[in-house]
Design a binder for these strands. Structure first.
Lengths: 192, 192
DNA sequence: ATATAAATTGTCAACTATGACAATTTATTT
DNA sequence: AAATAAATTGTCATAGTTGACAATTTATAT
């Protein structure tokens, strides 16, 4: 008996709203404001997720999971010669269904640092995974390079992608997307 | 008559303390906490600088100014063939008197975004200046390249430096400094 | 030593955020 | 329609933050 649980749906609405708030106001947006953005009361947030720390951790959990997942499945069924292009499109925002939100959130979450130790750990894991993932692709495509060299380039590409996102976000002209992508290509070409 | 003004010294103490707080707790550290860190009361902060927004803006002003200044004077009296190394040392943290704080603050301030419009503007200006500065050096050293190409590489190097700083900060091993620096060299070599 | 400018301390009211929990409403099954 | 589990709303006490300003103390030039 009793009624159907809305837990999953509500949780998603809350995290979505929180994400939008973070983009607009930063990680320290009050739960009150998040509730307003989501069109619900703070009590509901408390009911479905919990206190502030739990909300933050839940969000980071979701965002990092989704990001890695998307990146992992990106190459499925794609011929090798198109893989690099696709990866770059994703990392530098040229993809049609590209979800800006996730990357923006990631960028902002970098400020979680000491205040949210779980977040810090999660982000480190995420970036480490991304590097490994990219490095593996490079290794397969340009197999005469050492694993270390592949990792180095992967790290470089990731740096370019992340910074670029931040820069464009503070209002530097979108042209920079193209520049960053081009620099990433130079790095990858050093593997040829 | 009256007593000597401590304005300048106090202002510096406050901004220093604020910087340390931001590193530890984020941009939204309360002025109360900043005061504690600085070993004074909040009233003093209010007296010497003003309200929250003024404190934030003053800090950003100082940090961006100092950063650009240091970078600008870096090449003074340095022979061309050592310039690149020196720039890279500064950007990737190999310099002995390198002041980590400024770069960390910069990284954190990237979250100011919409909340502090003045900050956003200042950061944009700062980064634009840095790019121009680097691009000019590249142009002088490798003059057969187009200005656009030089700018592109400058942007890439800046992205590498900034991201790298963030990554190391969230706890990724310091080895990455070396990797980022190496990638920057690859980019610059594309100008040879 | 005294006038004076500036430093420093202290206090207050208004506002906001949070956590906890009680009370009520709604949907669903039997 | 009655039972029940979950959703939703509402309220409260507590604590923290901020801005404003009054009161006091301290150093310095004359």
């Amino acid at each position: 008996m009793g009624r159907k649980s809305l837990s999953e749906a509500r949780t998603n609405e809350i995290l979505d709203a929180f994400g939008r708030c973070i983009i607009k106001y930063g990680l320290d947006t009050s739960l009150e404001q998040v509730a307003e953005e989501a069109g619900m009361t703070r009590s509901i947030i408390r009911h479905y997720i919990g206190n502030r720390e739990e909300v933050v951790n839940t969000l980071i959990e979701r965002v990092t999971h989704d990001y890695l997942n998307t990146l992992q499945r990106l190459g499925d069924g794609i011929p090798d010669e198109k893989l690099i292009d696709l990866l770059l499109d994703y990392l530098f925002g040229g993809l049609p269904d590209y979800d800006a939100v996730d990357k923006l959130i990631l960028d902002i979450l970098m400020t979680a640092k000491n205040r949210y130790p779980v977040a810090k750990q999660r982000l480190r894991d995420l970036f480490t995974h991304i590097i490994t993932l990219l490095a593996n692709d490079f290794q397969r495509l340009y197999s005469h390079n050492t694993p270390d060299k592949c990792r180095e380039v992967a790290y470089g590409v990731l740096c370019l992608a992340m910074s670029n996102e931040s820069f464009v976000w503070i209002g530097m002209d979108a042209q920079h997307h193209v520049m960053a992508r081009q620099q990433a290509i130079y790095l990858i070409e050093s593997l040829h």
